[in-house]
Design a protein around this nucleic acid. Structure first.
Lengths: 193, 193
DNA sequence: CTATTCATTGAATGTGTGTTCAATCAATAT
DNA sequence: ATATTGATTGAACACACATTCAATGAATAG
């Protein structure tokens, strides 16, 4: 028998889940609060007992969302190429086994290039720039001779856009076959002579 | 001295340009007709003398947009790997020299995964599936031994998501360094033993 | 058992936005 | 020169949607 508090906690997550799904498919502006409420199975008014506004709900999701990329960047960076292999592997793993985390990646990927999200969310997203630290790592790998020559920022962009784009596509179409993570790393890998 | 008809034609394109830019940055729902009108420098009401509705305006853009991928698929396909090299080269070339076409790619890329666009536009986008023909070409390349082993659909997804994601990012941030097209093709290229 | 808290609803409110329209003025045609 | 067409505006309209709120009833506390 679930206590009142447990029920509330459970519904809190149900809302976040439903909202995440809708925000990915329709975007922030096109997602109606009533859509989310309906997906969870509650009245629209009740949703405002859990989140004070649509904006706050979205921003809460983004707060969770930045943890995904952050965790990835916390992987062992001593060997740059190994880091990218592991990063790609992890993200694609989420896509198959942890749809919530996978959807978070998709959400972050969209938020990165959208001008139509709440200001608070925009600040959060822009505050965590994944490209600069990635470019630094790529530079290191280039010196070691494991990563191909070329503008590090451009290489970082290529790597992350592939990962994010694939994650986004697979979240929306889960039946699509999942690429292998080392294919993507081949964008960075130095080719043998 | 421009005639009345020329003026009208010119403004028609100005509207399409401004709308394209805003739709990419903000998405369909978050882009207000008044935003577009303001960007062009006309009253909101006047815009409806050029396009009967916001929906029609968006769908017109999508109609132009599908021509981009269509043209790419019309490139010579006799040598699969050469085709992908040329396709990647062309798309990235547009990003640098023809921002209208480049933005079209970004628009199509977004539309592909959005549930929040007009039905007419959705039909158009879904009607032209780029993945199936690409997968067929990949299969051919695999038989020839120029393309790596692996699920052809998954390889097609990887290739196009990289291209589209990069195009989208560069359209929004034109100052970002542009990757080299052959990096992306390395996702498909069979590695020497 | 009674009182209180609080989840829940459905209707009401207000704002924002797509669209329409009557009126104006400039360009073109006759 | 006059009439007609068409570009242009600003205000008006209607509708959709985020948010509020008073009322209800069930769970919990005392």
């Amino acid at each position: 028998m679930p206590t009142r508090k447990e029920q509330k906690e459970k519904r809190y997550w149900e809302i976040l889940n439903a909202a995440l799904d809708l925000f990915i498919r329709k975007g922030y502006a096109a997602t109606k609060v009533s859509d989310i409420a309906q997906a969870v199975g509650m009245s629209t008014g009740l949703l405002f007992h859990y989140f004070e506004s649509k904006e706050k709900l979205y921003t809460t999701l983004i707060e969770f969302g930045i943890q995904g990329p952050q965790q990835v960047m916390e992987l062992d960076q001593s060997d740059p190429l190994a880091f990218f292999e592991e990063a790609a592997r992890q993200v694609l793993l989420y896509v198959t086994i942890d749809s919530f985390t996978a959807k978070m990646f998709a959400l972050m990927s969209q938020a990165q290039y959208s001008d139509a999200i709440p200001d608070a969310a925009k600040s959060l997203v822009r505050g965590f720039n994944i490209f600069e630290p990635t470019a630094a790592l790529i530079r290191k790998g280039q010196q070691q001779g494991t990563i191909r020559a070329g503008d590090p920022l451009a290489l970082a962009l290529t790597f992350w856009m592939s990962i994010m784009g694939i994650a986004e596509a697979l979240v929306v179409y889960p039946d699509f076959p999942c690429p292998q993570s080392d294919w993507i790393v081949d964008v960075l890998r130095r080719r043998e002579a």
